[in-house]
Amino acid sequence: MLALTLLSPLPAFAVNPDEVLPDPALEARARTISAELRCMVCQNQSIDDSNADLARDLRLLVRKRLVDGDSDRQVVDYIVSRYGEFVLLKPRFSEKTWLLWGAPIALFVLGGISLVVFARRRAGKPTGTRLTAEEETRLDEILGK
């Protein structure tokens, strides 16, 4: 078990040593921002995890903007202005994405309403047929009546 644990692959981050900022606080901010941005080549990875050249360029751009004094929001807004909302792994809530964010909630509410309506319609209806006289006498015999 120990050997398996030691030999199991650890998450490999694509950040190269030459990209790391000397200031640990700025580096932590850069890693946080990089984890939120999509690699435009890989598309299902963040730029922090991707080895693509474009991801490296974006990581360097994020770090340059942070060193220049931009806030986290300004850095993300700058990247989004260049590459569009698709670069965000978690899209922002806006008039363009209301359907994306609202559809699961709407479907959940509609499903709940449908269940309530179905249950109310079904509540007043009998669920089976009446027992025949023979079945009633047999049931009385079994129950000892």
Rank of each mutant, 00 (worst) to 15 (best):
M1Y: 07
M1T: 12
L2I: 15
A3C: 01
T5I: 15
T5C: 07
T5K: 14
L6Q: 13
L7Y: 09
P9E: 10
L10C: 06
P11M: 08
F13V: 09
F13R: 13
A14W: 04
N16D: 12
D18Q: 10
E19R: 05
V20E: 14
L21K: 09
P22K: 13
D23I: 03
L26P: 05
A28P: 03
A28G: 12
A28T: 14
A28R: 13
R31G: 06
R31E: 08
I33C: 03
I33L: 09
S34G: 10
S34I: 04
E36S: 15
R38E: 04
V41L: 04
V41S: 07
Q43H: 11
Q43C: 04
N44K: 10
N44W: 02
Q45V: 01
S46G: 11
S46F: 05
S46E: 05
I47W: 03
D48Q: 12
D49I: 02
S50Y: 02
N51E: 09
N51P: 05
A52L: 03
D53I: 02
A55P: 04
A55D: 02
R56S: 05
R56I: 06
D57S: 12
D57N: 12
D57Y: 02
L58H: 04
R59S: 08
L60Y: 03
L61R: 14
R65Y: 11
R65K: 14
R65I: 02
R65W: 08
R65N: 09
L66M: 03
V67D: 05
G69C: 06
S71P: 03
R73V: 08
V76Q: 01
Y78A: 15
S81H: 07
R82P: 01
Y83D: 06
G84R: 03
G84M: 00
G84L: 09
F86Y: 06
F86I: 06
L88E: 08
L88M: 14
L88N: 12
L89N: 07
L89R: 15
L89D: 04
S94F: 05
W98Y: 12
W98T: 11
L99Q: 09
L100K: 08
L100M: 08
W101L: 12
G102K: 13
G102L: 15
G102I: 09
G102A: 14
G102D: 10
A103E: 02
A103P: 01
A103D: 02
A103F: 04
P104I: 09
I105V: 15
A106P: 00
A106W: 08
V109W: 03
V109L: 15
V109G: 10
V109F: 15
G111N: 13
G112V: 12
G112P: 05
S114P: 01
V117E: 10
A119F: 14
A119N: 11
A119H: 13
A123I: 07
P126Y: 06
T127A: 11
T127Y: 02
G128C: 06
T129A: 11
R130S: 11
L131D: 01
A133K: 05
A133Y: 01
E134T: 00
E135L: 06
E135A: 14
E136F: 00
E136M: 00
E136G: 00
T137S: 13
R138V: 00
L139Y: 06
D140E: 09
I142C: 01
I142K: 00
L143K: 14
G144C: 10
K145Q: 10
K145G: 04
